[in-house]
Design a protein around this nucleic acid. Structure first.
Length: 878
RNA sequence: GGGCCCUUAGCUCAGCUGGUUCAGAGCACCUGCCUUACAAGCAGGGGGUCACUGGUUCGAACCCAGUAGGGCCCACCA
């Protein structure tokens, strides 16, 4: 067979992906096997693959492929999220480019554009996942606005409303003036901003007195409806019951008392603007204050802003400041750092705003979800530290604002039939709504035309929180076979940034709608950062092009590169060099295969060295397998990969292959080739989840295979329960001897080709078992034993035995003696510390028996070694 | 302001119930090698006061307290 010299990923990847698809290896249907299910965290439908997705989905693919090897019915459900706010913003921007304004379109027209956009670009990211090798069951691809998923959302809304958990309320909400919608608390990111604290003086009505307040937002004085002071503040006792005049507008507002005011801050006087601050609103409610909203939805000032009407809030802030200064109301300004809420999506500064919104009561819903993670441990979070964060959020969970002033999404199924506050009904559709409305209003003449559906859409997360259920249609048909088989799912792999948005809410939804957890394990990946530890972001332009990486390094190389340094929960400092390492690894394996493949076999006896080597590698493999299992069980994916990496690179390639390799152009015995091939196959099986393409390719090259023999579904190797530790230990010693000879070769510049002798100084029966291994790897003619030191030879020590390599030419006796002396000094020091320990009575009486035994063995070994060292020294200097 | 976590080799990180798997790994680095599978490689090698200070202990990277630095989450102080 002709093999290319180097591994060439791009063509092979396409080929094998098609092969897997063609034979439906990714597809899953309920059967008698145990299911293993993952639902993908659905990426934004209009998104493109970035490094976070790559990491995330590689891990999922590793888990799902491993589950397939282990014989589970593995099902990975892919899909996308409609991402209402982000997608709507993109569609609006695109329309704007075409000269179309959203305001000129009807809801239906706009949605038509949005769907068009979705249909055009919606599949892109999923196609990119295929390039990465993701083995999703693509027939199951779901979208959060598919008919069934949307119907599920509506059903759930109606259900929760009927349970009294959803309510409509006029509340202070987070308003994004750019997206023109409200945001949930979770979508607001607080940032420290340098600003100014303005000290403004207010005239007291009917007096020449003035009082000074401190504010960061002078533009909101037009919304002031009171000045508030602390009732016990001695400075202001005279002001109780008086009124003040708002500068610039001239309105009279009351001066009120409330213990909320912090006497220490600013001047101890607080201006109260109930429409634009949550606390002010609370004060306003206790004191029955008016509410004056001074902003338009886009955060420009409205008519209350008088001369500043139409001006943006930040421009208005400066302008008002100037006007106040000009009119003599501004006492001073001070630099001041405050925290400003910004929109996660648009980065716009959030404006607290009073409006009618829909809310979901969370407190009772949170209880089972809290218990499941923290008490029953039905759901495990990896790393565990996130349980603290989870607890904190869940215990202080606030009602969830679920309405958004957007069109792209599920429209809120509330129907209004009149102008009264309670003149609405909630129902799955207009027909049912009409019936309910007729009953509620006691007006049987109401018709469909009289109903107005709420204009708002639901928060995207209000559909994705159902994802693990709704992809199996478990809301609409709660007893269908699929949901009963696949739910609860097994693992969820996602970023910690959506712990609250998504993970916590899915847990809530799971218990509320299925009375069962949505998944068993949650694995949180780290954030992908660049080498300078900066978050990867579009604006910084530091995010590499994911597809370009796959082109350059191969999907397998990129997968390895990403996984190698991504310990669970730690951020991953992405460096392309890691992908290079992955690519190198692929090439290494490729070449290893090429070597075996090239061997001609003949019927000759298997060399002893090969036999021993194969035995040893089998044991090493079994041991590694246990270690790998352990890593997987703890979701230490990176460590599992590293264990395989070292197994294949060091143990398999550097030791085993070198050991069984025939001399150039000489044939090899059949047993060796066959056995090494089996070992290679086992390597491929455990590596396949990480490097699916390369491994499948080699697997199929080893021999012609039927589809049912494909590597992707090959059973995971069964390791031996008992590991031959004696052999492993003996081999370690042999390796050290080999290293010893190699070091001598290197130091004395003796070519590898030159055959050497090795003499072991020992009065005991020497260990001959692995001599064949040592001879082969060190290129020795034979190993002999002696009871006296060898003259004119270089020496080294392994454990308590001394080895001699006789060489022609002069030996630098002094150098040899110095080397021995140094080792003697070290060993004597070591012995002293051991003996100190052993002569310490408290150690002997307190330490466990086995620890003492170990120390005693150390003592004996050290003593023996010292003796041989002294002998050598005496001999060298004689 | 409250809570959680981190600090180990040049870099990224392991190090489990304190004791020979305790000072490790990968990469990077240095020195030889184009030795016929692989220079995308092979062989050999150097490198750390385990952030700092104190305590507990026969024994501390590991437990406790404090200090310094870094990160994350939560929170309405204008």
């Amino acid at each position: 067979m002709n093999m290319p010299l180097k591994y060439n990923p791009s063509e092979l990847e396409k080929h094998w992906y098609n092969y897997w698809m063609e034979h439906k290896f990714f597809a899953s249907k309920p059967d008698t096997r145990i299911p293993y299910t993952i639902v993908i965290p659905p990426p934004n439908v209009t998104g493109v693959l970035h490094m976070g997705h790559m990491l995330n989905n590689t891990i999922q693919d590793v888990l799902i492929r491993r589950a397939r090897h282990l014989g589970f019915n593995a099902c990975w459900v892919p899909g996308t999220d409609h991402a209402s706010i982000a997608t709507e913003a993109k569609v609006v921007a695109k329309l704007k480019e075409q000269g179309i304004s959203k305001n000129d379109l009807t809801r239906e027209e706009f949605l038509a554009h949005a769907w068009e956009w979705k249909n055009e670009y919606g599949g892109v990211i999923l196609e990119q996942l295929k390039k990465l090798g993701c083995s999703c069951d693509w027939d199951r691809t779901a979208f959060t606005m598919d008919a069934k998923l949307s119907d599920s959302v509506i059903k759930v809304f109606v259900d929760l409303f009927n349970k009294g958990l959803i309510y409509r309320g006029n509340r202070m909400v987070n308003w994004d003036p750019e997206a023109l919608t409200t945001l949930s608390d979770e979508e607001v990111i607080y940032e420290e901003r340098q600003g100014l604290l303005y000290y403004i003086s207010y005239q007291i009505v009917g007096s020449t007195e003035r009082l000074t307040i401190a504010t960061t937002r002078p533009e909101t004085i037009f919304g002031d409806t009171a000045i508030c002071i602390h009732p016990e503040d001695h400075r202001y006792l005279s002001l109780h019951g008086k009124k003040a005049i708002v500068p610039l507008s001239g309105r009279e507002i009351p001066i009120i008392n409330d213990t909320y005011v912090d006497m220490e801050f600013g001047t101890g006087c607080l201006k109260v603007t109930p429409a634009h601050d949550l606390n002010d609103k609370a004060i306003g409610e206790t004191h029955g204050l008016d509410i004056i909203d001074i902003f338009n939805p886009d955060a420009t000032l409205n008519a209350y802003g008088l001369a500043f009407e139409g001006m943006d809030r930040f421009k208005a802030r400066k302008a008002v400041g100037k006007a106040l200064e000009k009119e003599g109301f501004l006492v001073k300004t001070e630099p001041h750092i405050n925290k400003v809420g910004t929109s996660e999506r648009t980065k716009a500064v959030i404006e607290p705003r009073l409006s009618d919104q829909w809310f979901l009561k969370m407190e009772s819903l949170a209880q089972p979800a809290l218990k499941a993670v923290l008490v029953d441990e039905e759901i495990k979070l990896f790393p565990k530290k996130f349980e603290n964060t989870y607890r904190h959020w869940m215990e202080n969970v606030r009602d969830w604002n679920i309405s958004r002033q957007l069109w792209w999404g599920q429209q809120i199924p509330a129907f209004y039939y009149g102008n009264g506050k309670e003149d609405f009904v909630v129902a799955e559709n207009a027909t049912i709504a009409l019936k309910l409305a007729q009953e509620k209003s006691v007006n049987s003449h109401l018709s469909l035309e009289d109903l107005r559906q709420d204009e708002d859409a639901l928060d995207t997360w209000f559909s994705s929180w159902l994802w693990p259920i709704s992809v199996f249609n478990g809301i609409l048909e709660p007893e269908n076979d699929e949901i009963n088989y696949y739910y609860p799912t097994n693992d969820l792999v996602t970023g910690p940034d959506i712990l609250f948005f998504w993970v916590a809410r899915m847990i809530v939804a799971g218990y509320e709608f299925r009375d069962a957890k949505p998944f068993t394990n949650v694995y949180f990946t780290g954030l992908v950062r660049d080498k300078q530890r900066r978050k990867m972001s579009k604006s910084l332009g530091n995010s590499p092009n994911a597809l370009k990486l796959i082109e350059d390094y191969g999907a397998d190389g990129v997968r390895v590169g990403l996984l190698l340094s991504s310990a669970a929960g730690n951020d991953l400092m992405f460096d392309e060099a890691l992908c290079q390492q992955g690519k190198n690894f692929a090439n290494k394996i490729w070449n290893g295969f090429k070597l075996i493949q090239s061997w001609e076999t003949v019927q000759i006896e298997q060399p002893e060295a090969a036999k021993k080597g194969i035995e040893w590698y089998s044991a090493t493999f079994d041991k590694a397998l246990l270690e790998i299992e352990d890593h997987f069980s703890k979701y230490r994916i990176s460590d599992a990969l590293m264990a395989i990496y070292k197994l294949i690179w060091d143990d398999y390639s550097s030791w085993l292959l070198e050991l069984v390799k025939p001399v150039y152009q000489k044939p090899v015995d059949k047993a060796t080739k066959d056995q090494v091939m089996v070992l290679l196959e086992n390597n491929l099986k455990i590596l396949h989840p990480f490097m699916p393409f390369l491994t499948e390719d080699i697997w199929q090259q080893i021999t012609d295979r039927k589809p049912q023999e494909a590597l992707i579904i090959a059973p995971w190797p069964k390791g031996s329960e008992r590991i031959d530790n004696v052999l492993l230990l003996a081999f370690e010693t042999a390796k050290q001897v080999v290293s010893g000879v190699r070091t001598i070769r290197k130091e004395k510049q003796i070519a590898n080709k030159e055959v050497l002798d090795l003499v072991v100084l020992s009065d005991q029966k020497p260990l001959e078992a692995l001599n064949s291994v040592i001879e082969k790897l060190s290129n020795l003619t034979n190993i002999t034993q002696t009871e006296t030191p060898v003259e004119g030879a270089l020496s080294f020590r392994v454990d308590s035995l001394e080895y001699f390599v006789p060489i022609s030419g002069a030996i630098d006796i002094e150098a040899e003696a110095t080397k021995v002396q140094e080792e003697l000094n070290y060993t004597q020091g070591f012995l002293k510390s051991v003996e100190n320990k052993l002569s310490n009575e408290r150690f002997v009486s307190n330490a466990p028996k086995d620890v003492i035994a170990i120390e005693k063995k150390k003592q004996i070994d050290a003593k023996a070694k010292i003796e041989t060292l002294i002998q050598s020294l005496v001999y060298l200097r004689s």
